[in-house]
């Protein structure tokens, strides 16, 4: 797909497939074209080249069919300030041609799901940023869409809401819905996403699966902290393991989880008191850094 705004090429060449039952992460630096891509998926923008199919429908020629199926949560959206949370959702229900009773029932269900019950009768104006984000998600979920397009849903959320968001997304995927979520917060995405599509400068640079087997076999960077720092370095030097110091810790390259476990066992066996032993980057983070390296 390609989309330009005048001379600014926002989306140059992005292709991706998001499958039902999976959470697909859309990752990329600022200005990579994520939001533009989501606008095209949300039936608001026509791509210059390329095609989009959402459950078999083309957002350009069959927007109504697509709109009935997608729930879109924009990045940095506004809301009708004067309305209460409940009224906002009732209005959205009506906009999706629900009857009043159905709209009320769905509103209560979504309020319950996103823990917005306490705020239901507050005006949207007084909500905090994180609360507004939750209202935005509630709006996207109201008509029970089968495809969710979420643009930075976690920004502004408190830690608890983030964890709840993760659970909501996982539940949606488990129900067979297609979830496409863009974010900057890689560690979060790592926990929630099945696959990650990394975009940079309007191009897909990598489309990778984030499953356990892949993590287990990739060479990764691990960070070791020990009470016996000097002995640890000596120990590594004796065994010709390349290492570098990072503050009090030591960073080594290890080929997969199996090897990491063996290394830890050996260290402990030799009486080195290890207090922290963890991958220094998530797999997603590593891939992201690799994909966007040319930016620096």
């Amino acid at each position: 797909m390609r989309r330009a705004f005048g001379s600014v090429l926002a989306v140059d060449d992005i292709s991706l497939v998001a499958r039902p039952g999976e959470v697909t992460a859309l990752v990329g630096p600022n200005g990579a074209g994520k939001t533009t891509l989501l606008l095209m998926l949300a039936t608001l923008l026509v791509p210059d080249h390329g095609t989009i199919r959402i459950e078999g429908f083309d957002p350009v020629t069959q927007p109504a069919e697509v709109r009935a199926r997608i729930g879109w949560m924009p990045d940095g959206f506004g809301t009708w300030d004067a309305l209460t949370v409940r009224e906002v959702l009732h209005t959205i229900g009506a906009a999706y041609r629900m009857g009043p009773a159905e709209a009320r029932a769905r509103t209560e269900a979504v309020l319950e799901l996103l823990h917005l019950g306490d705020l239901a009768d507050r005006r949207a104006r007084v909500l905090s940023r994180g609360q507004k984000q939750r209202l935005g998600l509630a709006r996207a979920l109201l008509h029970d869409p089968s495809v969710l397009l979420l643009d930075e849903p976690a920004s502004g959320l408190d830690p608890r809401s983030r964890i709840e968001l993760r659970d909501v997304l996982r539940t949606m995927a488990a129900d067979g819905k297609t979830v496409l979520v863009s974010s900057h917060i890689l560690t979060e995405l790592q926990e929630v996403a099945d696959r990650a599509v990394i975009v940079a400068r309007g191009r897909t640079t990598q489309d990778q699966t984030l499953d356990a087997t892949e993590l287990a076999t990739t060479v990764g960077t691990w960070r070791i902290t020990s009470l016996d720092a000097d002995r640890l370095r000596q120990w590594l030097g004796e065994r010709h393991v390349p290492w570098r110091a990072e503050l009090a810790a030591v960073v080594v390259q290890v080929g997969g989880e199996e090897q990491a476990a063996r290394l830890l066992a050996d260290l402990v066996a030799d009486g080195i008191r290890v207090i922290a032993f963890a991958p220094s980057h998530g797999a997603l983070e590593a891939a992201y850094l690799a994909a966007t390296e040319d930016r620096q």
Partner: peptide, 13 residues
């Protein structure tokens, strides 16, 4: 400008 128009445009209205 307030970011509420698109919210309606993506519904069935």
């Amino acid at each position: 400008e307030a970011g509420v128009l698109a919210t309606l445009q993506t519904t069935l209205l």
